[in-house]
Each structure stands twice: as structure tokens, then as C-alpha cells.
């Protein structure tokens, strides 16, 4: 069969045969081993990347947990502070109450002692006044009235100067 442009079916088939041989040879000799190496390297790097991402996620989770713990610790510290403040306040109140009670006791004792001392002083003054009166009466009876009066004044002056 004469085709234009020198087209020859036999030569077309020969070219195809040549190309098929080349395709098979290049695929098995070169393409497949190179591609296999590239794929294995890519999968190795993908695994490494996945591993790194997993570790990063773990680290982020751990960080969040620590931050949560930190936040809880701050709250715990605040609670402990509040508790300690309440305790200190109640201890101070108790101490104040006790001090007031003690002061009241001291005041009572002092008041009683002062009362007793006053009573004693009054009793003594009364006794001294009675003595002076008795002495003055005795003087009046025994001496002149002026002398008695002077004597009385002197005694009174002595009593005040004491």
C-alpha cells in the first residue's frame, strides 16, 4: 500500500516496537529503582514529620496541663492565705477578749484593794479624830481653853503635815 509522505506501516510498527522496548527497559532499569528510593525517602521523612508533630502535640498538652496546675496552685495559695488570715483574725480576737477579761479582773482587784484601803484610812482617821477629840477634851478639862485650842491646832497641823 502506497501512502503519501513516505508513510510506511511496517516502519511505524518498528518504531513502536523500539519504543516499547525502551519503555520496558527504562522502567525496570532506571525509573522504578529511582522512584522507589524517592518514595521510601519521602515516607521516611513523612514518618519523621508525623513523629515530630506528635511530640509537639504531646508537649503542648503537657504545657496546658502544667498551666492548669499552675492556675490551680494559685487558687490553692489564695485559699490558704484566706484561711490563715481568718485563723489569725480569730486568734487575735480571742487574745483581745482574754486581755479584756484579764484587765477587767485586774481592775476589780484594784478596785477592791482601793476600797479596802479607803475603808482602812477612814477607820484610821476616825480613830485619830476620836483620839484628838479625846485629847482635846482632856486638855480643855485640864488646861486653859487657849492652850487647849493651840494644842488642838498644833495637833491638827501635825496631822496634816504627816
Amino acid at each position: 500500500m502506497n501512502l503519501p509522505l513516505n508513510i510506511d506501516l511496517q516502519q511505524i510498527l518498528l518504531h513502536m516496537l523500539n519504543f516499547v522496548i525502551l519503555f520496558g527497559g527504562l522502567y525496570f532499569i532506571l525509573y522504578k529503582p529511582v522512584k522507589k528510593f524517592m518514595d521510601s525517602r519521602a515516607s521516611r521523612y513523612a514518618e519523621k514529620e508525623a513523629e515530630a508533630e506528635r511530640k509537639l502535640r504531646d508537649a503542648e498538652t503537657a504545657k496546658e496541663q502544667y498551666e492548669e496546675k499552675l492556675r490551680n496552685a494559685e487558687a490553692e495559695i489564695d485559699a490558704m492565705k484566706a484561711d490563715a488570715a481568718a485563723k489569725a483574725e480569730s486568734a487575735a480576737a480571742a487574745a483581745l477578749k482574754k486581755a479584756e477579761a484579764d484587765a477587767e479582773g485586774i481592775r476589780k482587784v484594784a478596785r477592791a484593794e482601793a476600797e479596802a484601803e479607803k475603808t482602812e484610812l477612814l477607820r484610821r482617821a476616825s480613830r485619830e479624830a476620836t483620839g484628838i477629840a479625846a485629847a482635846a477634851a482632856e486638855k480643855a478639862v485640864l488646861g486653859s481653853a487657849e492652850e487647849a485650842f493651840d494644842s488642838f491646832l498644833d495637833n491638827v497641823g501635825e496631822g496634816d503635815g504627816r
Partner: peptide, 12 residues
């Protein structure tokens, strides 16, 4: 550069 080679390539 031969038409037969080009046809073989195109048809393949």
C-alpha cells in the same frame, strides 16, 4: 524527524 517515527509516537 521521520513521519513514521512521529506517527508511532502519536499513536502510542
Amino acid at each position: 524527524a521521520d513521519i513514521n517515527g512521529a506517527i508511532a509516537m502519536g499513536v502510542t
